Simulated assay, not measured.
Amino acid sequence: MTGLDLTPAPRARRPRPKVVTLTERAAERVREIMSKPRKDGAEKPYAGLRVGVKNGGCAGQEYVLEYAEAANPFDEVVEDKGVTILVEPKAVLFLIGTEIDYEVSKLSAKFVFRNPNETDACGCGESVTIEPAKEA
């Protein structure tokens, strides 16, 4: 034995891109919603906005947005423009590169997902077909 330490030195990890981002309009709307008193009367504020994908609709999949009481152990936590977004683990590959916007028109106000992984959408705009992100 030579007494040399052959343990590799830890390497700095390169920064990972955010799975999803928000436009300023979307971030402003989420901050506004989250600042209001909770409808269930609880004092504790929400931990963030949970984003996911579920099977459903005529195109096969639907986006899901809901208030999150706490981060789940495997959620991808994204901080963007002062908003905490919790991405469900099974949705990460479907949402990589997605920008969430908030649009207001004469007939509706809604969050809109601009997802580069979408391959199709139904006519009513309520469901989409999403392929997992390809390796770069």
Rank of each mutant, 00 (worst) to 15 (best):
E135A: 12
A121E: 09
D75T: 01
K106T: 14
P89Q: 15
N115K: 04
V128Y: 03
P15L: 12
D40T: 07
G3I: 09
L86S: 14
T119F: 07
T2E: 07
C124G: 01
R16L: 13
G3D: 10
K110I: 10
P116K: 07
V77P: 00
Y102N: 11
R14C: 07
P45A: 02
A47M: 03
G48N: 01
R11T: 00
T119V: 12
G57V: 01
D5P: 01
I100C: 08
G3Y: 04
P8V: 05
I100A: 07
I96K: 15
G56W: 12
D120S: 12
G52P: 01
P45D: 02
G52E: 01
A91S: 15
L4R: 11
A27Y: 04
K18A: 15
N115Y: 07
E76D: 10
L22M: 11
E118Y: 06
L4K: 13
L107S: 15
R11S: 05
K106F: 13
E76C: 10
P116Q: 10
K134A: 15
A71I: 04
K54V: 14
A12M: 05
A42D: 13
T21D: 07
A68D: 03
S108M: 11
F113K: 06
K90S: 14
A42Q: 12
Y102D: 11
V77G: 01
M34I: 02
S35N: 04
A26W: 00
V53K: 02
V30Y: 02
E118N: 09
D75N: 03
D101V: 07
E135N: 10
T21P: 03
A59E: 00
K36E: 12
E131C: 08
S105A: 13
I96F: 08
G97D: 10
R38S: 08
Y46F: 14
K134E: 15
P89C: 07
G57A: 06
A136G: 11
E79C: 03
S105E: 13
T129L: 11
T7G: 06
V20M: 08
A26L: 02
T23H: 06
P17Q: 12
E79V: 11
A70L: 11
A12T: 13
Y63M: 03
R13H: 05
T129D: 09
A109T: 09
D75H: 01
S127C: 11
Y63D: 06
I85M: 15
T21I: 11
Q61F: 00
E28C: 08
I130V: 13
E99A: 14
S108R: 13
E99I: 15
I100N: 05
P73Y: 11
C58E: 15
S105C: 08
P15K: 05
A12G: 08
A68C: 05
V53P: 00
E24F: 06
Y46S: 12
